[in-house]
Amino acid sequence: MNSLLDSLRGIGARVIDGIWRMGVATRFFLMILLQSGQSFRRFHLIIREIYSAGVLSLIIILVSGLFVGMVLGLQGYETLQTYGSEEALGVLVSLSLVRELGPVVAALLFASRAGSAITAEIGLMKATEQLAAMEMMAVDPVARVVAPRFWGAVISMPLLAAMFSAMGILGGYLVGVVLIGVDEGAFWSQMQAAVDFREDILNGVLKSVVFGVAVTAIALFEGYDAPPTAEGVSRATTRTVVTSSLAILGLDFILTAFMFRGV
């Protein structure tokens, strides 16, 4: 009887704790938005963060994009060949990249490259009292540290996703056209006929913006909320990667259901 009550109490405590954390996270997110004006007035702060979130993620994004596109080219060719429609390779590669793989894979890479870095950095700044020091210098850490990182990462994410897709399509082109010898004209023209700017490309960009906001908000909150110890920061970093990966995939399903249901 007692153990039953205890486990019920355990569930209750977890639920209450979870809801409470959600509330704190929401308030934190609203605070970031409220304090954003100041960071836009001092844009060089955001530029710094675009550098660390975007430029430093370039290599992994470009290389992964190229390889994903090349694999798509190979696998797609093998499958399409059985139906005698190799010319549709461009369509297959570009639609899978622009709609799904570009935004999703780029966001997953971004979460593990830039998101974890953001969490670790903010967590360590908190653990070493840098945030408290800032507060004592009458500088709001949310405005000075958190908001610029938020906007830097949110601006970087769609650009990275677009580069990922573009690299992937080039990779598919390299394998399909240059290596295997699919007709170049058919590759591009079928692609252009099938890919719609608004329906496919803009929706893909919109996805990556949503993922960028989600990943960055999670990373910042985990860092800001991390217990100020070495163990706390390392756990928060792991949680950032896990939570934001799940968030990306879950959001992707919801967004896809809304965007492409008509097809």
Partner: peptide, 26 residues
């Protein structure tokens, strides 16, 4: 720093433009 970020943003916009003009039917 500014230079790198400039290159990054231009490359990103170029990728969007590439998708819009070469891949999609703008």
């Amino acid at each position: 720093l500014d230079l790198w970020v400039g290159i990054f943003v231009v490359a990103g916009l170029a990728a969007v433009l590439f998708l819009a003009l070469r891949v999609g039917n703008m």
